[in-house]
Design a protein around this nucleic acid. Structure first.
Lengths: 203, 203
DNA sequence: ACCTGAACACCGTTCAAGT
DNA sequence: ACCTGAACACCGTTCAAGT
């Protein structure tokens, strides 16, 4: 029973979910696979290369079978899918942020986003830039959402809305609110921006 | 000549700029300070705690002395300041993304952003959420911009606009363009979104 | 083709003991 | 109060040698 690339990625994700990114080591992964650490380097040239494969696994299939609807609905749906896909795995957003953006599934998601925006009426170049902005927002939001989650898990999260010397206005408004709602709010803000681009083009 | 917290942070940043985050180790830092590794733990409880201090250093003073102008101009100016502050140090965005968001200077930037949006006419809660969205965009964009920079440094950056099996629409439009321009475009998109919020409120 | 054994050159962190 | 010495329990990666 030989080791397969897919198998390695699967077990790596299991370890990641169980113990987090900082605890995912090549040695522990090898042990979990019943193999010595050096064997992994036959299948992956390095740990970053393995993380690339893991990240691409996270976004696999996200661009497929998007329900029909307006471009607004499709954009919202795809954005939510990406966020949920990253939240589904511990440190998922941090893993994706650290990887090379040219794995096949990552490209697919990017392409789909661009296509939706082109269908909305944006020219190719503008659609590409806008898709890039949207992806960066999703990534930034989800990294922070998940960082907060990890800190809460360790009981290390308690930003004070008001300390003695200064108030923390973000803690008072955003940090306490439901992350899913805040995420949707941000997507809405971007949609409004895109609509403005479209009316600018029509003039 | 005893070691000071500030001194430790300064030398750590020098090491970071020279060799990158992955090469910044407590042992090398100690050596650079002419001290043994254990000594650092008198000044910082852990490596993450040191990184918190470094990240907060990066955004120090950014909220101060913002030129007078419309809320749009102030928002653009502050956004650019944050991006530039992170770009000024190797892996700056990645460092900030990994740290606890309750260091004093980080709070100050957040507060300033909320204030600008309140002056624009948004109610407190909405201003907080919007500020959060803006910060996440800046963070997401700058992480990716800097990741690309690091890859280019190693000659490992070459996403193909067209491969044999599929085209990469983001590579064809966004990746090749000037990151500063793309950043400004995203900020503009967000500004349009905020303006829409304001007109919605006025109805 | 795929894996082991064994090494190389490192890590972060703790803590008694020193000054 | 601040630092050293020395250890503990690890890392990622390489590569000759085995099967």
């Amino acid at each position: 029973m030989r080791l397969q690339r897919e198998q390695v990625v699967e077990v790596a994700i299991r370890l990641l979910d169980a113990d987090g990114l900082d605890a995912l080591t090549m040695r522990k992964l090898a042990t979990a696979l019943g193999v010595k650490a050096g064997a992994l380097y036959w299948h992956f040239t390095s740990k970053p290369a393995l993380l690339d494969a893991i990240a691409d696994r996270f976004v696999a299939g996200l661009a497929a079978d998007l329900p029909a609807g307006t471009w607004e609905q499709q954009l919202v749906a795809l954005g939510q899918r990406v966020r949920r896909a990253l939240l589904a795995h511990r440190d998922g957003a941090r893993v994706l942020a650290g990887t090379y953006p040219s794995e096949p599934n990552t490209i697919q998601v990017g392409n789909k986003l661009v296509e939706i925006l082109q269908n909305a009426g944006l020219p190719a170049q503008q659609a590409g830039w806008t898709a890039d902005v949207a992806l960066h927002y999703v990534l930034g939001h989800t990294i922070e959402e998940q960082a907060q989650l990890e800190l809460e898990k360790r009981g290390a999260w308690n930003p004070q809305p008001h300390s003695d010397d200064a108030e923390n206005k973000l803690a008072a408004t955003a940090f306490a609110a439901d992350p899913a709602e805040r995420f949707d709010y941000g997507v809405k803000l971007l949609l409004d921006g895109v609509r403005q681009q479209l009316t600018d083009l029509a003039m």
